[in-house]
């Protein structure tokens, strides 16, 4: 049942030009940044070769690509998630789901997985860029795997926040702006702490920052604490979404 809903979400996305334009724009911008970075590597290759223990091509290109991807997607995900519930509420199509023998959790999870499916397509397209380097040489697949796992977690978190914001309103634009604001806030929380070891200093604001839990992944470090942070973030916002829709039914 969850997959029925997820599949419809995904299909609807591709029926509108929105999904295609997002795929195109994201790919174009990231490809440009990626190529610029590759060019930079080519320029400095002779100097790097002279160094002992020089960073490899993956280490130079990948964190940069992942960082850019995160920023671009931070702008794009709100546009994808804004319509999930808000638009159905506005078009009064929510009644179809609510009167079907489907539970609220199934509705929320279905919608979430639908948008997640799309984000993973974006992710796969981004992954093709560093993978294309395999044509001309070797890359550090372990580093890449960790990096993209981090990006996947990050996108899943973005989508959960976006879904929740979409359940709050019937205006998709309001949902988009709220999502964007919330994500940006989560992102910049670490500026108050200055530095990654802020957590050690007991700066809980910095500890909450999404960025601080994404950076280790970009550097190829998989830490279960960071993974748990993302899972908790996702679960929290999904539960909040379910509660919010239930409250709709109770309080009208």
């Amino acid at each position: 049942m969850i997959f029925t809903i997820a599949l419809r979400e995904l299909r609807t996305l591709f029926l509108s030009p929105l999904a295609w334009s997002i795929l195109a724009v994201v790919q174009l911008i990231l490809a440009f940044l990626f190529l610029a970075r590759v060019e930079l590597y080519q320029i400095y290759q002779p100097q790097l070769a002279a160094l002992d223990n020089a960073p490899g091509v993956t280490e130079i290109i990948l964190p940069d690509l992942l960082g850019n991807a995160a920023i671009v997607l931070l702008l794009v995900v709100p546009l994808l998630t804004m319509r999930l519930v808000a638009e159905e509420r506005r078009n009064k199509t929510l009644a179809l789901l609510l009167s079907a023998p489907v539970s609220m959790s199934e509705i929320v999870l279905g919608k979430y997985l639908g948008v997640l499916g799309f984000l993973f397509i974006v992710l796969a397209l981004i992954a093709l860029m560093p993978l294309s380097l395999l044509l001309g040489g070797g890359i550090d697949l372990g580093l890449m795997l960790a990096g993209f796992l981090g990006l996947a977690f990050l996108l899943a978190g973005f989508a959960a926040v976006g879904l929740f914001m979409s359940t709050l309103t019937q205006h998709p634009t309001v949902a988009a702006i709220a999502t964007f604001g919330a994500l940006l806030l989560f992102w910049v929380l670490d500026w108050s702490g200055k530095g990654a070891d802020a957590a050690a200093q007991g700066n809980w604001l910095a500890y909450l920052s999404l960025f601080n839990h994404y950076k280790p992944f970009m550097e190829g470090l998989f830490s279960s604490a960071d993974a748990v942070y993302h899972v908790l973030l996702i679960a929290t916002f999904l539960v909040l979404s379910i509660r919010r829709l239930d409250a709709d039914r109770l309080a009208g």
């Binding site: 419809r8 609807t12 029926l15 509108s16 929510l94």
Partner: peptide, 8 residues
């Protein structure tokens, strides 16, 4: 209002 998805 019939709950229809106009794009299907």
């Amino acid at each position: 209002n019939p709950p229809l998805y106009r794009e299907l």
